[in-house]
Amino acid sequence: MKTAVAYTGAAIAEIAGCFAFWGWLRLGKPAWWLFPGLLALILFAYLLTLVETNAAGRAYATYGGIYIVASLAWLWMVESIRPDRWDVAGACLCLIGAAIILWGPRG
C-alpha cells in the first residue's frame, strides 16, 4: 500500500512540476510558476525514495508505467482532452510491464 501511495503521489508531483515549466515556457505563464514547480519536483524525487525496493532503477522503471497512466489522467482532467483507445491500450500495456518488473519472481 505504501508503494502505491508513493507512486501515485510521485506521479502527481512530477506532472504538476513539469506542467509549471510547460506553462511558463509554452503558455506564457509568469515566472513565479517555476517556484511551486520546483517544489513539486523535489517532492516527486523524495516520494520515489519511499518505494519498497532494494534497487532505485527498478523503482524508476516501475514508476514509468504509473507515470504514463497519471499523465493520461492529467490530459483528461486538466487539459480537457479525453484519451483515445490507443492511449488506453498503451497505458494498459505499460501497467502490465510495470507489474512484471515490480512483482516478478526473483532468485
Rank of each mutant, 00 (worst) to 15 (best):
G9L: 01
I12E: 01
F35D: 09
L43A: 15
E14K: 04
A6M: 07
N54G: 11
W32Q: 11
G37Y: 12
M1H: 00
F35P: 04
A13W: 02
L39H: 04
I42R: 06
W24L: 09
T3W: 00
L38I: 14
V5A: 14
V51A: 02
Y60R: 09
F35Y: 08
L43T: 15
W24E: 03
F19R: 08
Y46P: 00
A10W: 05
L48Y: 05
A59P: 08
A11M: 03
K2G: 00
R26D: 05
F19L: 03
L38K: 05
C18I: 15
Y7M: 07
F21G: 09
A11L: 03
L34F: 07
F44S: 15
A59I: 04
L47M: 10
A10C: 13
T49H: 02
A11Q: 01
G28N: 06
K2L: 12
W22C: 00
F35C: 07
F19W: 13
L43P: 12
M1E: 05
P30T: 08
F21R: 02
V5Y: 12
I15M: 06
Y7L: 11
F21S: 06
L38Y: 11
N54P: 13
W24Q: 08
A59V: 06
V5C: 08
I15K: 00
Y60W: 11
I15L: 07
E14I: 03
A20W: 14
T53M: 12
L41A: 10
T8H: 09
A45W: 07
W33M: 12
A40M: 09
E52P: 06
A4D: 00
L27E: 14
A59C: 03
L34N: 09
A13C: 09
A20V: 07
F44K: 10
G9Y: 04
A45E: 11
